[in-house]
Amino acid sequence: MKVAYWPGCVSRGFTPELHGAMAAVAPKLDIELVELDRANCCGAGVIAEHNQELVDTLNARTFALAQGVEGAAGMMNICSTCQGAQSECRERLDASSEYREAINEHLQPEGLTYRHDPDWWNKNFLWLLVEEIGLDSLRERVVRPLTGLKVAAFYGCYISRPSRRLGFDRHPERDRYLDMVIETLGATPVDYAGKHKCCGFPLITMNKETSLRQAGRHIADALDADADCMVTPCPLCHLNLDLQQPDAAKRVERDLGLPVLHFPQLVGLALGISPKELGMNKHVVKTDEVQRVVAGVAAAA
């Protein structure tokens, strides 16, 4: 399947291991990624806070570029925040033709237009994997089942709420996809309180205490539920849960040390890609324990 691919800013900045992992996983799933290298930042909620017309225009521009990719089935992103921020703009663009025309005027000088087309989609890799590729097809491709690995799913707010804007009426199980994939890969999903809560990242520069207490609490809950690692489809969540984990531990006054995987990394492990190629050595919280469990399974098999 060919898709117009929006990797987002963070996967090419502070979480380069995510960009690399996706590039390694795609061919194993027969996904052809056409990277949108002219597209711009989704605004991550901040430009929306500043000016709605600006953020809607910037994302309409990205959509228009994606719609121009010949033969693409749709557009794919690898960031919960991109998903939510872009879905929000698209909801407004699709609600009124008059508004859409006003926004499209800004794109004219570049020869671009966002087309209203209910069949055109923009999906996070998680949604694409379950809905377009399918769990059965994924199961067939698993060469290294993650047996014995206990994984705590962490979705990110932007891909969970508001459910109506995010298409839950048509896909009511979108808030369970991570657990479904974890099971399909042979690992064990862990139940804990924080699954659909907030990592705190949007507050990291404005209120570190509120921000990191959230991250710390969810990690602690996952540890108490006996998780070996956490997995998230959002690189911003990853920044707060992994990069900031040592500081978060101080705010909740306990030792943490839970590895946090990017979603494509977890999939890649089960598809037989080496941890190194998946960038698993580039985490702040070491992933050795996860690698050991996975390697142990492979050795025993």
Binding site: G45, G84, C157, Y158, S160, R161, P162, K197, C198, G200, P202, L203, M206, N207, T210, S211, Q214
Partner: peptide
Amino acid sequence: LYDCTHCFA
């Protein structure tokens, strides 16, 4: 104003 974590809950 700046203590809202933008969680959509």
